[in-house]
């Protein structure tokens, strides 16, 4: 019997966040290993407990971000594992792959209901790197294995993308709001569609969406880049800014976990509860 759950990180050609994402898993008390896109058999044989699709630019974002990777054979495996209930997390480009594969929102098998379109808001377009604030939908906290420990507070996380605007058709507004997992808000927790609280013009201020069962989560912000408090910017307002400032001279600054760790420790807790 395995001592710790195994969370695999899949490296697509063009991925570039696989190493730090894998470290975030390991730092949360789980095993992690990175498999290349063409190591389908090795991946399957390793009997993973959960999957992470990391950030980057898989297949050069050809066609659309995530579109080509979604058609890779290895995604068939992820698809069937997700259907069996295994937790799957897509971060940034990984989220784009999950959307392009139809795994989120996953209302109907194999059907693509959403898109991650080019950022466009308040006259600014192109790539945007900045720290945003989000809160976790109450339903998502209950059913999503990646979100169980995220709490009701506001989480600061960094985004870094050019195509992160969740798009749904207007007639699916209600359904989409049911699939909402993470929503952008301002530093005080108020939801607004204004820039920069909503950094890319995302529909319903969506920062992350999930499938109905909650085991598949696609999120644009990067939790692995906010795993430790020391990764947070000095100007960050609010509760997490306070925590950072307090730990600065406490001697534990290097080893105190930040808001991004909650996504990974939630999963570790989920596995502990399940076993």
């Amino acid at each position: 019997m395995k001592s710790a759950p195994l969370v695999v990180v899949i490296q697509f050609p063009g991925s570039n966040c696989e190493y730090e994402t894998s470290r975030a898993v390991q730092n949360s008390g789980m095993d992690s290993c990175i498999y290349r896109w063409n190591q389908w058999q090795e991946l399957k044989d390793s009997l993973p407990d959960a999957y992470v699709l990391p950030g980057g630019f898989s297949f050069q974002d050809r066609v659309r971000a995530g579109a080509v990777a979604a058609k890779e054979k290895i995604m068939d495996l992820v698809f069937s594992e997700a259907a069996g209930g295994k937790p799957v997390l897509g971060i940034c480009n990984g989220a784009q792959i999950l959307v392009e594969s139809g795994m989120v929102p996953g209302w109907e098998r194999g059907r693509i209901e959403s898109a991650l379109a080019a950022n466009h808001i308040s006259g600014r377009s192109g790539y945007l790197s900045r720290w945003i604030f989000l809160h976790v939908a109450a339903k998502a906290r209950k059913i999503c294995p990646w979100l169980g420990r995220t709490g009701t507070g506001i989480l600061p996380l960094p985004i870094a993308h050019a195509e992160g605007r969740f798009v749904f058709s207007e007639e699916n507004r209600y359904r989409a709001s049911n699939s909402a997992a993470l929503k952008y808000c301002d530093e005080k927790g108020t939801e607004t569609s204004d820039y920069p609280a909503n950094p890319n013009g995302s529909f319903l201020n969506l920062a992350g969406i999930m499938n109905d069962r909650g085991n598949v989560l696609a999120m644009m912000p990067h939790p692995e880049r906010a795993y430790w408090l020391w990764q947070l910017p000095p100007y960050l307002p609010g509760e997490w800014g306070d925590r950072r400032d307090q730990s600065l001279h406490s001697g534990s600054y290097a080893s105190t976990k930040g808001p991004g760790s909650l996504f990974f420790t939630s999963l570790a807790d989920y596995f502990r509860g399940e076993r």
Partner: peptide, 20 residues
């Protein structure tokens, strides 16, 4: 200018441009 750049990939960044 910096808002277009990814200064945090690899997860090692302590101070981004402008912070220090």
């Amino acid at each position: 200018v910096w808002s277009y750049y990814d200064s945090e990939v690899q997860g090692n960044t302590h101070f981004r441009p402008g912070e220090a």
